[in-house]
């Protein structure tokens, strides 16, 4: 009998912590949503589980720290992966020094840039999906919305989502944080970064009626 502790309930998944094979692991499970059409629900749960497994491994190959995957169950739509002993970046904002915050955000930007350089977008790059270990080492998780063969547009959307997360959740620090993320991003992507940040601005202007 394996024992689980629920450590988080998100919009589409539950995260359970467990000890298995002498390792600290988490099980990420996507339960059914009875209020959605069953074909849409079945498709999304399965597609995102598969996508997440693949992209966690692919991102690692690009040198981005992600939890290792040990098992996947497509009937249950669950994934068994490494437990990261860290705190969400979201929780640290306001509790670390300004210098420390800039360092963390710069590293966040570098990680996004590492993905983009490999033509991968994360799809949900919020500060909830960045984990910081006590040592300072940072991880990026939750790849269910990630995609490959990313175009400038897709990368622009990814950066737009970073900004959106900062302005809704960290409005007191959003300017410093965004600047640090973009500095980190620029330091890895180089000259190509301009085109993508311009697209980010453009995307922000769409979808509003004027």
């Amino acid at each position: 009998m394996v024992e689980y502790t629920v450590i988080a309930v998100g919009a589409e998944s539950e995260i359970l912590r467990t000890r298995l094979w002498s390792r600290e692991l988490v099980v990420k499970r996507r339960p059914a949503k009875p209020y959605l059409h069953d074909k849409i629900d079945a498709y999304l749960r399965r597609y995102r589980t598969v996508r997440e497994c693949k992209m966690l491994a692919y991102a690692r190959g690009l040198g981005i720290p992600t939890p290792a995957v040990y098992a996947v169950d497509l009937a249950e739509c669950s994934i068994v992966m490494d437990y990261v002993d860290g705190v969400q970046l979201k929780e640290l904002v306001g509790h670390v020094s300004p210098e420390q915050l800039v360092r963390l955000c710069k590293r966040f930007g570098e990680m996004i840039a590492g993905l983009h350089r490999g033509d991968v977008v994360h799809g949900d790059p919020t500060t909830s999906n960045v984990l910081v270990e006590p040592s300072g080492r940072m991880w990026i998780v939750d790849f269910g919305l990630a995609d490959v063969n990313a175009t400038v547009e897709m990368k622009g959307v990814d950066l737009h989502l970073v900004r959106r997360a900062l302005e809704t959740t960290h409005w007191q620090h959003q300017e410093q944080m965004l600047k640090a993320v973009l500095d980190g991003y620029q330091s890895i992507v180089g000259d190509g970064a301009d085109e993508i940040t311009r697209r980010m601005e453009e995307i922000r202007q769409r979808g509003r009626y004027h």
């Binding site: 959307v157 737009h160 959106r164 302005e167 809704t168 959740t169 409005w171 007191q172 995307i203 769409r206 979808g207 509003r208 009626y209």
Partner: peptide
């Protein structure tokens, strides 16, 4: 017809957490 937004109050303002990226 013209808007698709998910909004919540935070820090003295109504903030748009999500919205359409193209049409409403």
């Amino acid at each position: 017809g013209g808007n698709t937004q998910v909004i919540a109050f935070a820090g003295g303002r109504f903030r748009t957490f999500g919205e359409t990226l193209d049409i409403a």
